[in-house]
Computed example of a mutant assay.
Amino acid sequence: MKKLIFAIIAVLLLNLNAQSQIPADSAKAPSGLRGQYEFMLSKSKTINGYKLINPGRLSGLWKNVADSLNTSRKQLGAVKLKLTEQEKTIAALKGQISGTETSLATSNAKLNEISFLGISFTKSNYNVIVWSLILVLAAALAIIILRSAKHIHEAKYRSSLYEEISQEYQSYKTKANDKEKKLARELQDERNKLDELKNRGR
């Protein structure tokens, strides 16, 4: 234990002695942190396996590290602020897009909607209903035309029958009239003969 304490004291004394022997740092260190670190290591001396570093160089490196950290923190804060603003902008744009999509959907629904007799239909349903009505009316018209044609044909047939019967009746009437006249003439002849016979008998 005593040997360990003596060894630590010896190292401290050697370090103090070495620091008192380090001259003032006149060399200019590179600008980057890595370059300053490597420069500091290259300028340090090794005694008994320990690196003796110039306190001025170490302080300069620490100051540069702190400045770099502060700059990075400021840049990070600025980036976070910008990111927050961009997120707000994105949220606002999403809201506008959502509103636009809703408006577009409403407009498309209105364009795709037809109002008839106070009832709203989509264009597809309206087209189906209209074409169904057209087909039904066309079928009804075809049935009416066919029935009308049938009735017209029946009427023409009955009219021709009536004409035929009328002609037959007229022919019969004429024949009957002729027969009646003939019979009347014959009857008159017979009467005349009878009158002549009566006159002769007197």
Rank of each mutant, 00 (worst) to 15 (best):
R200W: 05
E101P: 02
L61V: 02
A140V: 12
F121I: 12
L83F: 05
S124Q: 15
K110G: 00
W62A: 13
Y162H: 08
H153I: 11
I119V: 12
L141I: 13
L183W: 08
R73K: 09
A140D: 09
L33W: 00
Q167V: 10
F6Q: 14
S72L: 13
D67T: 01
A184K: 05
I97M: 15
K110C: 00
A78Y: 02
E101I: 00
L104C: 08
S120Y: 09
A27Y: 04
E190Y: 02
N64W: 03
A105P: 04
K150M: 11
A91V: 04
N108Y: 06
L161T: 11
G49L: 01
N54D: 08
Q86P: 07
G99M: 15
Q170D: 06
W62H: 13
A109L: 11
Y162I: 09
P55D: 03
N112F: 04
G56D: 13
N199H: 12
A91N: 11
N70E: 09
N15F: 07
H153W: 11
K179C: 12
L197G: 04
S103I: 00
Q36M: 10
K63S: 06
A29Q: 02
R158Y: 07
D25N: 15
I119H: 03
L197M: 08
R34I: 06
A10T: 13
K110R: 07
I152E: 14
I5N: 05
R185Q: 09
L117I: 07
S42Q: 05
T89W: 01
G77Q: 15
Y169G: 04
A105T: 03
L41S: 03
L58A: 05
S148D: 15
A139Q: 10
W62M: 13
E168W: 07
D178Y: 03
L76K: 11
P23A: 15
G77I: 05
A18M: 01
N199D: 14
N17Y: 03
K63V: 00
R34G: 06
S44R: 01
K94M: 00
I165L: 13
S160M: 10
K82F: 01
I119A: 03
A184W: 02
G35H: 01
I90V: 04
E180N: 14
N112P: 03
S72T: 12
K198P: 00
V136H: 11
S160P: 03
D189R: 11
D189N: 13
E113F: 02
R158C: 01
L104G: 00
G77T: 06
Q86M: 14
N125M: 06
E164I: 10
L197V: 05
L69V: 11
N177P: 02
L58Y: 00
Q21T: 15
T71D: 13
N108F: 01
K74N: 08
G32K: 06
K3F: 02
K51V: 08
A91T: 13
S107Q: 14
K2V: 11
L111V: 00
Q167T: 13
I144T: 14
E163P: 05
M40L: 01
A29H: 03
R191Q: 08
N48Y: 12
I53F: 02
A176T: 08
E113W: 01
N125G: 00
K181R: 05
E101C: 01
I134M: 15
A139W: 06
K123E: 11
S20M: 09
Y172R: 12
A27K: 06
E168C: 05
G49M: 02
S31N: 10
I8P: 08
K43Y: 05
N54A: 03
E163F: 10
N70A: 06
K3W: 08
I152M: 14
K63I: 01
V130I: 12
